[in-house]
Simulated assay, not measured.
Amino acid sequence: MVLVADGTRDAQRREALHALAETVADRREAPVCAAFGTRAELRSAVESTTGPLVVVPAFLAGSDAASTELLASLDLGDRFDACATAPLGAVPSIVAQLVARLHAAGWRPGDGVVLAADGGVELPGNGERRQVMDVARMLSRRVQTPVQVGYLHAWAPSVADAVARLRRNGHSRVAVATWQLVDGADLDGLREIGATAVAAPLGPSPVVVETLLAQHRAATARLAA
């Protein structure tokens, strides 16, 4: 398994990504190679790894524009023994983990909820913004309250604007569900926008680790077919 994400932006995020990779490797289902650097470093990691190999995104759909672009730059066209999986998206077990993180942060039934996603330039055909909206709808059904989507970068509304909108609509308490696998400097601002609670990122929870490994198992089976 080659775990892929952009880890070049800050040391905190890179450390968290490596902790996630170590947790996956500790399951001992497959050798794990961490590719959290530049495009050249990712290409080198893949080219130096004998197959069969599966490239698995260590980020969520719509959670990380830089990682999305990094993965899109990888060409496996000449590797019959390699394939890549899609980033995790609107998966029921992952959304259930979002709810667990909200509860742990102090969310209470009736509180407003903002789903904090990355935002940015969406690559043609990958449907990341749609997946974020699907996650928001699934989360809304689970917590029995409307969920606003807010973005950390580029797209509107911002997380702060989404929190303010819910407050204007009568929610004195607003919790932020963090649509990220790992922590990083980008998330520091979430703790400063005045939300009642900010949920921790999803990884490396057992649910996330198991789902990443399940992706690897399914892709390995396809390669062997």
Rank of each mutant, 00 (worst) to 15 (best):
S158P: 00
P206V: 06
T50P: 11
A154Q: 10
Q144L: 12
G170H: 06
A221P: 02
R79A: 10
R141W: 14
A154E: 12
S44T: 15
L98C: 15
R173H: 11
S158K: 05
D75S: 10
A82R: 06
I94T: 06
V46C: 05
Q12Y: 08
A82L: 03
A160N: 04
A19L: 01
G51D: 09
V55Q: 09
H216C: 09
A86R: 13
D186C: 11
L60M: 01
T220G: 04
R39N: 10
Q12A: 12
D26P: 05
S44E: 14
H103E: 14
L190H: 07
G89H: 01
L139D: 07
G203Q: 00
T68M: 09
V163M: 04
R28V: 01
T50D: 11
E192Y: 02
V147K: 03
R142F: 05
G51F: 05
V56H: 05
A218E: 11
L166I: 02
G194N: 05
R137H: 12
M138L: 13
N169H: 15
L223A: 01
V121S: 15
L3Y: 02
T68S: 14
R165D: 15
D6R: 07
L98T: 07
P57A: 07
A154L: 12
T68H: 10
P92L: 06
S48H: 12
C33M: 15
V143Y: 11
S172E: 14
W107V: 00
S44A: 15
T196C: 00
R141E: 15
P204R: 01
L76Y: 03
Q148G: 09
A185P: 04
Q215T: 04
V208W: 08
L181A: 09
S67V: 03
V208E: 10
G203M: 00
L202N: 04
T38Y: 03
W155F: 14
D10Q: 08
F80C: 15
G77Q: 09
L71D: 11
I94V: 14
L53M: 08
A16L: 02
I193D: 00
A219S: 08
A5K: 00
M138Q: 14
H18G: 07
L181T: 05
P109G: 03
A65M: 14
W179R: 04
P124E: 01
A197K: 08
A219D: 00
S73L: 08
V143M: 11
H103L: 12
V159N: 03
